[in-house]
Structures are given as structure tokens and as C-alpha cells.
Design a protein around this nucleic acid. Sequence first.
DNA 1: GAGTTTGAAACT
DNA 2: CAGTTTCAAACTC
Length: 795
Amino acid sequence: MKETPLISVIEDFNLYVVSEMPGSDIYRESDIQLKPQLMPCFQKEFQSYSSSGCVDEHLADPFKEDNIMNSSMSSLTSHKETTTKADDTNAGNGKATVLMSDQTGEELPSVSMNFFYATAREKEIERYGEFLQCLSGNVDDHVESDILGGTFFGEQHHELFSPQNIELQAAGGQHDKLGASFQIFPEFLQRDEACKYSKESLGSLSKESVKEADQRHRGIRRHLHFGAAISCNHAGNGTHETANLCLPARQTDFENLVPPHVETRGISGIWQAGSCSQTATLCSSFSPSACESVRSAQNYGNRALSACIPSGGDLHLNSFVRSESVGSEFSTSMKLGSNPHQQEETLMSDRDHYLCKEIDGIPVLSFLGEIYSHLGYEQQESQAAAGAGSSSYQSSSIMQTPCDSLHLIPYEQQASLCKGTMPSSEYADIVEFSQMSPERNRKKAKYTIKSEGCRRCNCKKSRCLKLYCECFAAGIYCLDTCSCENCINKPEYEDTVLDMRQQTEARNPLAFAPKVVSNATNSPANMMEEGKWMKTSSSRHKKGCNCKKSKCSKKYCECFQGGVGCCYGCRCEGCYNPYGNKTETIYRRAERWNNPSQEQLDTLESHNDCIKAERPNQFSSTWEELADIGQLTPPSHCLLGAVASSGSLNIRDCSKKFLGQSQQESSVLSPSGYLNWHHSPSSLTPKLYGCEALPELSSDSFFCNMMEDATPETLKNTCTPSTEGVKSSSPNQKWVSPPKIRSHELRSSSSQGLRSGWKFIMQDLPSFPSLAPYSKSQAAIHQNDGDRKGSTGYQ
DNA sequence: GAGTTTGAAACT
DNA sequence: CAGTTTCAAACTC
């Protein structure tokens, strides 16, 4: 290993290290051409970052020399090609990514977001610099390069820092791909023990000076920025439609990173995820969970897919509602790009190629629409999306589509993952579906929905502008694959859609919030344990159900649908929710979650096989959010943000209660405190930024209920005898505010709880941007109503 | 695939 | 805020 390049490598985007790697010539000769238009993206980052005073001259004007960029791009992918042929797919992927970054100089919101993220994580990165000292010693070249390349970041487990494992990663990690290479893992950065462990594993500690380490970490920081930039460009890989479809459940992650000043119209509110669930992909550019999801895919098969395909409950795709903002800008630039052929390659808008599409001759699964619609969500996220919302499906990477994530997985593996996630027959149908014409797709949509847990609406009268519409509710535009009639929820009616969202939000600030919120009581590992329940025992529906006849054991019940048990917020009668009911103590529920009885499993299975199939999605979505969102987001932020989005709620009391908690949590959960829950301007005002201000609140009911969400059920149930076993009715037909003492207890215990990993998480946060003039869209609506008046009975 | 059931959303 | 209506998904046949 050469000693000298180390510093310069970092200072120069790791270029030199890469160039000295075996096979690096391939990259020098690579046909990857970073378009000049991409420059603004980087410039912004670097310039913004110049305050740190560590921007090199060529960084100040990083694109002055095309070679630099080309080399940079090469460095990002070089280690892949120098490892195994199996990774060849990355080359194509990387190329696609770069090409997708084709911009026309437009400022990319995502860039700011990325920058913000990176900046916000500066502290952690500082710590990471310290960590690097632990590794700088005897790590050989390719290991180093791999670390710099991001593979290192891509792993959350300390074990991976052992020389052997690093070797393995460098040699052929499946996720050692472009996307995964840009992982930023704040969680990892927070682990002092990681450094400790690495020291032990490597057996030789760094002898480099702190200064050198600092230089290195600076370089890495830049590298991260670069990666972020790529990621953001990645995000813009599609038209509105693509973005809409591919929204992962983890959009929230990304939105959380959005600084207040960033225009986030395209990212309505905050996103979720919940899910597409969401989600596993958008986040991939920023969070460990993304990489984890990829790895999980490799290790656990179907889980990967679930990570990418959140189920309805957790998914929230709000952020991408305004795909026109983010998505359209990208799409526009894409459309205007100079290379139609390349665009054609990268864009996945062709619905005839939802699945099994080839990019650069490499077969990849392109999960769009039907499959990703509810990433997020519950967690969805998005959704949808992502799911997003997340899944809730509910319930993100931001800018990386699920498709992109999947691109990191060889086709065969993706296929197996798909098969592992669903019955073979359904898988076959999905494939068949993907191969059908749009016309047939439409007809088949319903089936796809059922089999995949991804939804497309079938609205007839609401014009997809009310929460009746699942697309609208998930914060996404309807697609051609929807079976809706007179649909207005389309980009061409953007203003109208936004207005309706605004109205809906005014009516219910949480209307677009994920339906399922989680208390992170379990580690991702626990939650992902094979055959176990995937959602935490304390996950619950944000508002609670009101079931009368379904006994909360059918999908009529939103709790059941979201895969969570009923809680006190529910007003259900005769609750037989197999996930849990109100009379159940938290301990019992937790026990059940960890060790579901056969009867319970049978119940679930008999009631809805689909739920069972989706569970992995929900899990992945959930734990991912625990992994990254949870790390980044103090509960109170989430709550405040959610409430703030209304602009009218009065939760002053509750907010006060939470303020201290949030601050405390911030210090505990997020060293970079201010990097939390940055919603869209419309949903979270800058005042809330950094917990400096509290929103005006009108009713503490919401907050108290949310608090109750986070309140151990033992506290809630102390006065609620169970009279008929699991059967119960709702003694409280209305939401109840927890006794003050509960809040106090909760608050006082929050510190302990949080330190032990007990976090409250709203999987996806709310709100669409409410930027469009009401009158304008209203006029459009009226006009539309007029057009339809008397014929549709539209409300 | 049509019809029914269900409960959330919207409305009054 | 309660009651009613509307709506679309879930479900059944």
C-alpha cells in the first residue's frame, strides 16, 4: 500500500487512491461522462461548505477540469470493477446514475438537502475522523479505497470492520455498488465502540496524527457530499411518474434532512413513508438502513423486497406529492437532456417495463407503480412510495428510487427475493403483469394490488382528490394503472391537487401523516428476526379505529390493515385484533409480538394472507426508520412538526411538555440536534427548527393522544379490566387525554427510555406543501365541478 | 365480476 | 360535536 496518497486522496475526492488501484484504468477510460450541467449541483455543495475552510482550490471550482469530475466519478465506482465481474452491473448502474444527473443548471433541492445532511452531520463526521485513525494503519489499499468508496459506510455492523470482512466487502459485496457506496451512516458515526472494535479487530491502531485524520475525514466528508450529489441526481432519474411510482417508504428520512430554507414543494411536508415504506431506497443514499436493506436482501431474501416495498400502513408519500418540484425539475431536465438515448435508458417511465427491464443490457427488476405505490408508506414510504408511505407500505431515499436499490441486486437475486416475498403464483402474476400492455395492466391492477399490497385507487366519484382515494391519501399522483374515473390527482392538475391537499390538511392536519406510528422498542435485528412479528408491539394506528362489526380482524380495520394492534385511541367494539387490543398490557403484547401463538398466527393467516405476506415489508420499513429516522428524529419534533403543519392546533400545553423531552432527546438521539424533522415549509415552520419555537396549538387532544401512543400501555390499562379475554369494547368512545401524570411520567422516563433505545417514531410525516393559491385551484375545482355537476354527484 | 359490507372521510 | 351521508376498499358469493 502506498502511504502518501492517503491525504491527497481525501483532499481530491479519493481520486488518486482510486487511480492507483488495480484496474483503475478502466475508469479513466470509462465512458462515464459527467455532464457540465451537473456542476451547479456540486458547486453549491462545496461552496456552501466552504465555510469550513477546507475546500480546496479545485473544489471551489471542482468542475473547472472535467478530468476531475471524470476521475471522481471513476473513483466512485472503481472499486467495483476492480473486484468482481459480478459487479459489472454497477458500471451500468453508475453510468445510468451519472447520466440521470443531467441537469440544465437548475438548482436541485436535493442538493441542498444533501448538503444539509452532510453539514448537519459534521460533528459525527468529526468523530468519524477519529474513527478513521483507528483504521489508517495497516489497512491495505483496496480496503482503504473501499472505505473511502463508501462500502465501509455501507455497513452498520462492527464485525465488518474486521480485515476479513472488509476484504469480503471489497471483493464482492453485492451492495458494494454505486448507490451503496454513498451511504452515510450517522448511526455508525455515533458508535464509539465501533472504533474500539475496529482497533481490536485490526490489531493495529492508527499512528497517524490527529491532523492527518482530520484531513482524511475532511476528504471523506467531501466524498460524502459527492455521493450525496450523485444520489440526488439519482433521485432525479425519472419523470414525475417515475418518481411517483418509485417513491420508497423512506422518504421521510430524506425530508428530515431538508433544511428550512430549502424549497421543498416537491417534498411536501416531510415524507414516510410512511411507506414507501417505504421505502428502502430513498434513504439508501443517506442512511445505514438503506444499505442494511440491501444487505438484508442478500442475506434474508424476501426481506429486501419488503424493504423496498413497504406496505400500506407505514407508507407515506407526501414528499413526492409535488413531484413536479423535485421530480419535475429532474424530469424536465431529463427530457431536455442532450442525449435522448441515454435518457431512454435511464428513465423507467415505460409502464410496459415495470419489471424485468434491462438497463445497459443488465436485467433488473424495476418495481414501479403497483409494487411500489405503497412503499411507504405504512410506511409505503411515499407509500406507497414508499410507501410510504411503510408496508404502509406505508411508509425513502430520497432520491433514490426503489428501483435503484434493486438495481444493486443482481437480477437473479431480485427475482428470488420477489419470489420469496410472495407466493410463487403471485410472483408469476406480477411478472405477467409487468409484461402486459398498459391496457391489460389496468385490468389487472386490482389483482396486483391484492397480491402485492401495493395499491392503486379505483375512485369513481371523488376524482381522487379526497382521502377516500388511496393515492391522494398517500400523497402521490394517480397513475394510468389506477382504475379511477375523472381523476384530478394528476400532475397536470397540480394546483388543484395541492389545494385539495391543503383543504384536507386544514380539516385534519394529520390527514397525510402515516397511519401507523411506532415506538421503537426493538432493535432492527430483533424486529427482523425470522418468523417473528415485525412491527413493534407498541406500533399503533395514529388515530385508532372505529370498527363495529369487523372486530378489527379484517382489513376494514385500519389498525389491522396497518398490522398493529388496537390501542386506547381506538373506539372499536368487540375488538379481536390479532395484533393486539386495548386491554392487553404492553408486556403481554410485546410478548405476543415476539412469540405469537399459533392461534394468533392462524388468525392472521386465515383473515388475510396478504397481511402476512406484507409483514416483512412493514418490518423492514419500521426498523429502517428506527435505524435512521429514529436516530435523527426526536419524537417531539415529529409531533410538533405534524401539529405545526396545521398551523392552527393549539397544543401549547402538550408542546411544553414535549419541549424538554425533545431537547433531551435531541441530545440523546441526535448529536447534531438540529438535523431533525425538517418538513416542508408549509408543514413545519423554520421557527420549529431546532426546537426554538413552539407552534400555536389549539387542542391538546392530538398531542395527548400521541403521547398516549408513546405511553406504556400498562399505564393506560390500569383501570381497564378485561372482561372477555381478548374481546373488548371501547370504554372510551372518544379519544382520551392521558392524565397529566402520564405525561410527567413519560417525560421523566423518556430519558431513560430513550437511552435504552425506546423512541417514539412517527414513521412518516405529513403534510403537503400548501403553496398553491387556493383561489386558483379552487376555481379549477369549481370549474371541474361545473363540468360534472349533475352527473357525478361529487361532494 | 357483481353485489354487499364496512368504516373512514366528508358533510350537515 | 354528533349524526348522517358519501365513498371506496374489503369482502362475499
